[in-house]
Nucleic acid binder design. Sequence first.
DNA 1: TCACAACTTGAAAAGGTTTGCAATAGGCAA
DNA 2: TTGCCTATTGCAAACCTTTTCAAGTTGTGA
Lengths: 359, 359
Amino acid sequence: MLDSRLTIVDIAREAGVSSATVSRVLSERPNVKAATASRVRAVVDKHGYQPNSIARGLLQRQSRVLGIIMPDIKHPYYAAIFSAAQREAENIGSVAQLYRLDYNSAVTGEFIRRLIERRLDGTLLTGGFIESPDALNLPDVLARLRQYMPIVTIGPAIPGFQCERVWPDLPSGTRRAVEHLSALGHRRIAFIGATSDTRSVGEREQGFREACERLGVEATLLYESMHNPAAGEDCAVRLARGFPPRRRPTAAIIVNDLMALGALKGLRGLGLAVPDDIAVIGCDNQFFSAYTVPALTTLDINAPELGRLAMRRLIGGEDQQEDDQDAAPRTITVEPTLIIRESCGARGVNKQRKGGGTT
Amino acid sequence: MLDSRLTIVDIAREAGVSSATVSRVLSERPNVKAATASRVRAVVDKHGYQPNSIARGLLQRQSRVLGIIMPDIKHPYYAAIFSAAQREAENIGSVAQLYRLDYNSAVTGEFIRRLIERRLDGTLLTGGFIESPDALNLPDVLARLRQYMPIVTIGPAIPGFQCERVWPDLPSGTRRAVEHLSALGHRRIAFIGATSDTRSVGEREQGFREACERLGVEATLLYESMHNPAAGEDCAVRLARGFPPRRRPTAAIIVNDLMALGALKGLRGLGLAVPDDIAVIGCDNQFFSAYTVPALTTLDINAPELGRLAMRRLIGGEDQQEDDQDAAPRTITVEPTLIIRESCGARGVNKQRKGGGTT
DNA sequence: TCACAACTTGAAAAGGTTTGCAATAGGCAA
DNA sequence: TTGCCTATTGCAAACCTTTTCAAGTTGTGA
């Protein structure tokens, strides 16, 4: 750990100038004589001197760190958001810092204390903890956090707390999935959700119900607590065993691809063919979704876009001053895309169905 | 952004003490009278005062931030490492900061400048960029970085640069995979690698060759440039079309599960049954690997353990002073585990094979 | 009552930068 | 040569803590 104690005054002394001048050279201010600048730069390069951004941060009252709060970076959906958001932060010379907050935990005062302590330049929040209905003090806690830094969420609206927000139009996307299945002739469709993400699942459920009602489709709702492959396997069992064959849903819309992955396995294990016995539509368009058997039809939420837009928002929010404090926070809506593969049966696999659509 | 300008001296003034005392109370030093302490705490709580960790960091010469450098957090292998490492950092009140460095890019001086500038407390490096054979200045760059902070890598040894290192025993793991296949009766086995991770793939190849030679197995080597599902699909084609049926390998060991996922799809598309026509063994034991068709037999590298151990190492390394500077850096070896599922044919699927093993 | 130790507290320095203000130097026109 | 304007540069304050050192306070035993 050699030169790390080298400071700007050491450089200044060696270059025969003041530390102010070195600082100006380093931050490429125009008002330095060319000769001086190059002399300073020579000394800087010679020692490989690197200014201490902590000291700078202290003075400038900014850390150039943006916080991203999410439950689980191992979940590919969150990884996609994080990766895209981080790239945006990088573009302006900041860095994204991940703070983990489990699906079911509450945003506590203790938790945001850690963010405040670090003097983050802003925070991006996403995950089930935003949605939990029993997180009663969430608005208070977030309001407190906002006293210190701008906040953007990727998630459904939080009652009692208005803030900048980026979110897909889930009701619309789910509606489209139902329409697609209905057009393929399905008359009994199941919606498979997870209770861990109450509100965002609620939005989908709403779109699901609306579309089913409008199209005269019989709607079935099944809930698992988590949205992982194991839960998907469980719900396959409930789907297969929970109904007399005649009344069993002929299609299922599943809250995410991870769960759908498990469901595919579960259905296969129970001897049900996808899509012939049960058509399946997932959500998220994960990297593995094109490789399942059969390839998964899925609602692409465009997670990278969510992350990108939210981070842009956050970065923009830093600049804007108190003058538009009272401007109502905006919500950016991202339209999901239905990616049609094999698991919904649209690719001509199930000829035996009566109604609808595609060749 | 209300109270954020509140400093320790404001608190001190209101509590009628000096800032030194407030500091002592906040860091829970024992030498403060109970009455004073509670008076201070009352004021602190009243305002929700939160000390500025940037100022503290400046004084204590540490940022409580640990850098993790990896190519792609979206890759589940890296996500697993990051997640585990981050948890360790959290345990000591630090936070992990992700720095992205693409598979093929070099560790440049410019890149490490960003780490030094932030005065990280340490850096964890992992990814193809460590391995690239043409990264000629890598030892120099890393040596420079080490002047500023401890370094731990998760990866194969870097010629010309010794440092703390955590790594699975890949030759041994690969050997075990070959032995397993050989015991099942396979006499022609393919090794499918990726050129993007030269050295780590080299280690596997070495184990592969050794085991094949020892067991009298005919070894075939195939290389793709990347290790993603698309590349896996490509190699399936090369496997299916590149050999006369009689001489085609009856099993393939694939460098990771992502690639194996693509290979399974590719083989299926070409009408080759797994494991009956070609047995497949992947690597990494990803969350999706139990859900492929057929379920993937895979060499579990134990990525979380790698991340955990490396981060512990890094944290420990901060403490140790110059006295054991010359102690040779240690390598921690993690033993991989072969997870046997269906794709290798050990589960009694392929009765027609002559030799070997399991019931 | 005194000596001494132990406990509390405050003053001030230190950490490494950036930046407002003032001073100096240099150039040009009168 | 003088006066004025601009381009450079340096001084010193500011950012917000922590920590050392010393001073003040309290308590105990003789």
